[in-house]
């Protein structure tokens, strides 16, 4: 197992499956998944800016599956599941949204997918950077011929009245 998170969260055992999507590795389907992820994030209590960042992270993760694990094949299976989990943090036990992406492609050496300099920008090169920047925890493992990517994020607690940041 390759642990990617800078700061992995301590996940408790309780989890509740909210939604499970099965799709093929067709890039044109990503817009439909983004819509579902955005709605799921809002339903799970995330504010608009956080919901947008989760949408971006999941979109980038799926793009990586299509480009790297499936090498551009458009007919391979991908499962995306959304669960509520509880995690331990400095503030105590906290609810979080867990998104798990499963594919049957070749194992991807995520540690090699690093941010690129301006002179070496190619499609997908920034994707993992976006995922790491936006999620609390990112873990990857390859078991039984499948890749499992698990993303976890907790909603940022609301600030006291009068200090709320504006969102457009």
């Amino acid at each position: 197992m390759i642990l990617l998170s800078v700061e992995d969260v301590d996940q408790l055992n309780r989890s509740t499956l909210l939604l499970k999507l099965s799709l093929i590795s067709e890039p044109r389907l990503l817009c439909a998944v983004r819509a579902a992820v955005g709605e799921m994030a809002v339903i799970s209590g995330f504010r608009d800016a956080e919901a947008r960042s989760i949408v971006l992270a999941v979109d980038e993760a799926l793009a990586n599956v299509i480009r790297h694990a499936y090498k551009g094949a458009v007919d391979r299976p991908i499962q995306v599941s959304f669960s509520t989990v509880q995690v331990k943090s400095a503030e105590g036990v906290q609810d979080a949204l867990q998104i798990q992406i499963v594919d049957h492609g070749v194992p991807v050496k995520h540690e090699r997918l690093v941010g690129r300099a301006l002179d070496d920008v190619k499609p997908g090169g920034l994707g993992l950077h976006f995922i790491r920047e936006t999620m609390d925890s990112v873990t990857f493992r390859h078991v039984g011929g499948r890749n499992y990517l698990r993303l976890i994020k907790s909603p940022t607690p609301a600030k006291p009245s009068g200090t709320e940041e504006e969102e457009s």
Binding site: D59, A63, L118, D119, V121, P123, G125, L126, G127
Partner: peptide
């Protein structure tokens, strides 16, 4: 409405 890392990369390629 939306842009991802591949979109940013395309903008960068145009810039270069």
């Amino acid at each position: 409405r939306y842009i991802d890392s591949s979109g940013i990369a395309s903008l960068i390629e145009g810039l270069k």
